[in-house]
Amino acid sequence: MSDTATPEQTAEIDDQSKRDFLFVSTASVAAVGTALAAWPFIDQMNPAADTLALSTTEVDLEPIEEGQSITVVWRGKPVFIRHRTAKEISEASAVKSADLIDPEGDAERVQKPQWLIMVGVCTHLGCIPLGQKSGESKGDFGGWFCPCHGSHYDTSGRIRKGPAPKNLAVPEYSFLSESKVKIG
């Protein structure tokens, strides 16, 4: 068999590769189109415009006395707002970062030391920790205790013991005035 192809063979190969190119490019265009068309059907599950519009909550802090906590609803989740005592603040800031599972200074977690604001959802699997009401268990560190799987949080809402990997989340918030805060 000779190495050089006859002109007919070359033409045939040329035609074959043109065919292949056409088939592959058409299939690619169709695949891209299908993928793009899928996006609206996925994105519709994301929060709708009216849901997003309701994503801020304003709270009046005036009635919360020192040592008291309230729970407000923000984006369908509980937000813990605690008016901390001087003792709780000093306990929280005294902890060495080496003792923490998720090292974070107390000052990084609050805008005003007396107001601790955080999402009241255990970072383990989403239960709501106890410790908001006076009679409830506050765990080994005087903060919050999650009854589902035994996670203990301190007076800064940091995880100290148990299976939870992270501190209780601090939401975005800003003080509109001395006693008014906007969460979200």
Binding site: P40, Q44, A48, T51
Partner: peptide, 13 residues
């Protein structure tokens, strides 16, 4: 109408 106005691509679907 919420699908038409607020849901992402709701009008299209």
């Amino acid at each position: 109408e919420r699908i038409m106005r607020d849901v992402n691509y709701g009008w299209l679907i």
